Amino acid sequence: MAPATVIIFVPGAWHSPDCFDTVIENLGKSGHSTDKVYLASVGPQTHLSGFGGDVEVIRSHILRAVDAGLNVVLVAHSYGGIPSSEAIKGLDYETRQKNSEQGGVVHLFFCCSFLIDEGHSLFSTMGGRDLPWYDVTQDRLEVNPSTPVETFYNDMSDDASCRAVAQLRPHSYQTFYSKCTYAAWKVVPSTYLYCLKDAAVPISVQKTMVENTASGYPIRTEKVDASHSPFFSVPNRLADAIRRVVVEE
């Protein structure tokens, strides 16, 4: 009998994983177990100097699952894809099987996320310069979005986008400079969800990462006609895409 699977959700910068709650509720109705990660870099008392704190907290959630013999589908949004990839090292299903250990990460689901290679960072992927909508503090420790509605929620109602903006928290800017040392998508079966109306990570950038950075690797793709926040604007479509991954695994 195959091990049970838990779906672990990792948000992007500025966001709480509570943004996935409607998706999680949908998946729960069909019997899927879920877990969600609160990133150390979002709204911290002291800003992080790199993504290590995020890697650690994501890895702790994965370890708790695999130590219980569970398989893991890791769903990562935006910035969350970078520390998520790093956190998987040594915890993928095949490696754990070779070590006679149960459970492991069986799939990585990128939701309009950053898919980068070793030696690269989010900052280098975006051309090595701040984006126009980055509002960075003078000490270069904190970053906030200056135009969150237009950048993240451009396909949502005014009321819904206002509620979403109210939930955002400051992000540790230096995490954007942390370089990836492990590209999990080279080892773990992966799916990339293209978001066609994304103004934060434009579809051209999403496709470049999948078609160029990950060229030669079998990255499955799906697409939704949605902004950078499909968990708000098309939660049922996102849940369906994740459900297909779990069924196939």
Rank of each mutant, 00 (worst) to 15 (best):
G119V: 07
A68F: 09
S16W: 12
Q174F: 09
D135L: 01
T175W: 10
S100L: 13
Y217L: 05
N236S: 12
I82F: 03
Q167C: 10
A184S: 14
I8H: 01
Q167E: 02
E25D: 01
T181G: 02
S124F: 05
T191Q: 02
N26S: 10
L131E: 14
I203H: 09
K98E: 03
G119Y: 13
T137W: 08
G81H: 00
Q206H: 12
E211N: 04
D135F: 03
K89W: 13
G103P: 07
G31M: 00
T95Y: 05
Y177V: 04
G12K: 00
V42W: 00
S60M: 03
R237H: 10
W185A: 02
S30L: 06
G31R: 12
M156W: 06
K29W: 00
S41C: 01
H32N: 09
D67H: 15
D67P: 08
Q138M: 08
Q174G: 08
L141K: 13
S233F: 07
H61L: 02
A65N: 03
S121G: 09
Q102D: 15
V23A: 11
C112N: 15
E249T: 06
G216N: 00
K207E: 06
V245H: 12
L196P: 00
V136C: 15
P44A: 06
V66N: 04
S227Q: 09
K197A: 13
E222A: 15
R129E: 13
E150S: 04
H32V: 01
V10Y: 10
A164W: 00
F20R: 02
E150P: 12
D130V: 08
C195E: 07
I7E: 15
S30E: 09
S229W: 05
A184T: 08
Y79M: 04
V143Q: 15
L193D: 00
L63R: 11
A214E: 01
D135P: 00
S60L: 02
V224K: 09
T208G: 12
E86Q: 04
V106D: 10
G104C: 04
L168Q: 09
L74H: 13
G216S: 00
S78M: 00
D198Q: 04
Q174D: 11
Y79W: 15
T22Q: 14
E94M: 14
C180F: 06
M209W: 14
G52E: 06
Y194E: 01
V37M: 12
M126K: 05
Y93H: 04
H77R: 13
R237Q: 14
A164K: 03
R220S: 11
L48D: 01
S33A: 06
V246I: 14
V246M: 02
T5P: 08
L193Y: 05
V224F: 15
E101I: 08
S178F: 12
C111M: 07
A241L: 03
Y194S: 07
L70E: 08
L238I: 02
A4Y: 07
S161G: 11
Y38L: 04
D198L: 05
R129N: 15
T191K: 04
V73L: 10
S146Y: 12
C19Q: 02
V201K: 12
D35Q: 01
E248K: 15
T46W: 01
T221S: 03
W185L: 01
G104Q: 13
R129I: 04
V42S: 06
D67S: 08
V106W: 05
E25S: 05
